[in-house]
Amino acid sequence: MNIVRAKDYQDMSKKAAGIIASQIIMKPNCVLGLATGSTPIGAYENLVEWYQNGDLDFSKVSSVNLDEYRGITRENDQSYYYFMNKNLFGKVNIDKANTHLPDGMESDSDKACSDYNKAIEAVGGIDLQLLGLGHNGHIGFNEPSEEFVPDTHCVDLAPSTIEANKRFFASYDDVPKQAYTMGIRNIMLARKVLVVVSGEDKAAIVRDAFFGPITPKVQASVLQLHPNVTLVADEAALSLI
């Protein structure tokens, strides 16, 4: 694992964006695995700025997102489809036909998951997978469990995850309780993995995930087995290692 120490969130965002930009420049038709949440927003802002300055071209890039809430429409401002269009897709020249997210409105979970596994295979796999890190060690919506689930699946969100997402909704009751998410094998088959983490509140899970035992109770710990992982984190998030 390569650990890149950043001074603060802004520095972390710029360093992470630089790694993503390098992937696009080296392979213009690359497949990016993308993440949502508050942590990647700064990286997306940098990528948009570099595109607007003429330094990046997304026209041949394809993308697959980690997850999507189940039972929420794409038009809902809390859907991850909406998030990606607001923060990246709507601001660069990526072909929307080449962007992929699980279908949150597909009520048949087996079909939704099977279709998404096929979509990942159809684009040729993931060149660079961007990940955030949940307080409980989840990556995507792979919550602490007794096992590593390999492929895209429907997951019941942990109470801590629902609580963390509550700030984006009118009330706790409005937060979706399920999501479709890539599985651990989907993530581990990415040729490169980029993890971004910021804040002192993540220091303990950074320590546990990357320097503790490999266990499905800390899903991110499996990344210790990946041959090409880069962790970009600020000083606060790295304070316990």
Rank of each mutant, 00 (worst) to 15 (best):
G137P: 07
K202H: 04
I205Y: 03
S198V: 12
I187Q: 02
V222W: 11
I214A: 13
H135W: 13
Q129L: 10
F141R: 08
V155I: 14
V193C: 09
K111D: 02
L225E: 14
N117A: 06
C154I: 11
I162E: 03
V195A: 10
T181S: 10
E146H: 15
D110S: 13
N136H: 00
D156L: 11
N165M: 05
A209Y: 01
I126F: 06
L223Q: 14
R207G: 06
I126E: 10
L130H: 10
V149L: 14
Q224S: 15
V175D: 08
M188K: 09
E106Y: 01
R185P: 01
A209Q: 04
N165V: 05
M182L: 09
S221C: 14
M105T: 14
I184P: 00
T161W: 02
S107G: 15
K217W: 13
L194D: 08
L88V: 04
I162D: 06
V155E: 10
N142C: 08
D103Q: 15
P102A: 07
K217G: 06
K177P: 02
I162G: 01
P159R: 13
V175R: 04
P159L: 02
N93M: 07
A170S: 15
N117Q: 12
C113P: 03
P216V: 10
L130T: 15
E121L: 08
A179I: 04
G125F: 09
H100G: 03
Q178S: 05
G137F: 00
F89R: 11
Y172E: 15
K202N: 04
Y172F: 10
H138E: 00
G124A: 10
V206F: 01
Y172D: 13
D201K: 15
R207M: 06
F210W: 08
V218W: 00
G124E: 09
S145V: 07
D115L: 06
N117P: 00
S114L: 12
K192H: 12
I187S: 07
M188W: 05
V92S: 07
